[in-house]
Computed example of a mutant assay.
Amino acid sequence: MVARVLITAAAAALLNQLQERHGPVMFHQSGGCCDGSSPMCYPDGEFIVGDRDVLLGVLDVGPDGVPVWISGPQFEAWKHTQLIIDVVPGRGGGFSLEAPEGMRFLSRGRVFTEAENAQLHTAGLITGADYARGARPAGRAPVVAEAADACPVPAGAPGISGAGGPRAPVIS
């Protein structure tokens, strides 16, 4: 089964550090406004998940994994996109746990193929209401070495290649 969300090894390493300091954590993919559309990292339970929020997956980081949520309306706009949570130097969102670390989480994206969309459609979704009733995903979302491993950019794509070679497009 294709995962709706992945995390890079560098982002997973930072997430492990944050879990050591703060205990279990979660992500909520921000929909904009003050913090752009960054994945916001909170101590688990400090951000109230709404009944219509959608669980994109549970990242395979830490003993309990890290759930990644998105609002229902935003999911409808992004349901065709796999999110890859990555990390770069810079100041994170004001409310996100990585803000004081000199790093910031960001979302990169890859559009699902038609076959992947069909597979995901049959798999169904877990909403906040389902989660409150005990629904959980069957497995965990994997860690990838680099964002480009999950989301390769064709060589020579305008405005995307840089000193480090091809990079996955940034959503936030």
Rank of each mutant, 00 (worst) to 15 (best):
I70S: 01
H28E: 08
R52H: 14
V25F: 00
R21W: 00
V88M: 07
V61N: 04
S30I: 04
G32I: 12
G62E: 07
Q29C: 14
G72R: 00
P73Q: 08
K79P: 04
D60M: 03
H22S: 12
T81S: 14
Q19E: 14
C33G: 11
V68H: 05
R104L: 03
G90T: 01
R52G: 12
S38L: 12
V58S: 07
F95Q: 13
E76I: 05
D51V: 02
S107Y: 06
E98A: 04
L97R: 03
P24L: 02
H80G: 13
P73N: 12
D44S: 14
G32F: 06
V25G: 01
M26N: 02
P89M: 02
V49P: 01
G45C: 11
G94R: 10
V49M: 01
S30K: 10
G32M: 12
G62Y: 02
R108E: 15
L18S: 09
A99N: 12
W78P: 03
S96H: 06
C41Q: 06
R108W: 05
P73D: 12
D35L: 07
P63H: 10
G31H: 09
G92W: 03
G92P: 06
T81A: 11
W78F: 14
V88R: 10
D35W: 04
H28D: 07
E76Y: 09
D86K: 07
P24Y: 10
L106H: 08
C34G: 10
S30R: 10
Q74E: 15
I70Y: 05
L83I: 15
A77C: 10
G62F: 04
P63A: 14
D64V: 09
A77K: 11
V49Y: 01
K79A: 13
P24I: 01
G50R: 04
I85D: 01
D51P: 05
G94Q: 09
D64T: 12
H22R: 01
M40P: 00
G50A: 10
K79M: 14
L56V: 03
Q29R: 10
E76K: 08
G36E: 07
I84G: 02
E98D: 09
D44C: 12
G31M: 11
D35G: 08
R52P: 08
V87Y: 02
I70K: 01
G57I: 05
C41L: 10
S71C: 09
F75K: 00
G57D: 11
L83D: 11
V87I: 12
S107N: 15
H80I: 12
H80E: 15
Q29V: 13
S38Y: 11
V61K: 02
G23S: 02
F47C: 09
G93S: 10
S107D: 15
V68P: 08
E76R: 06
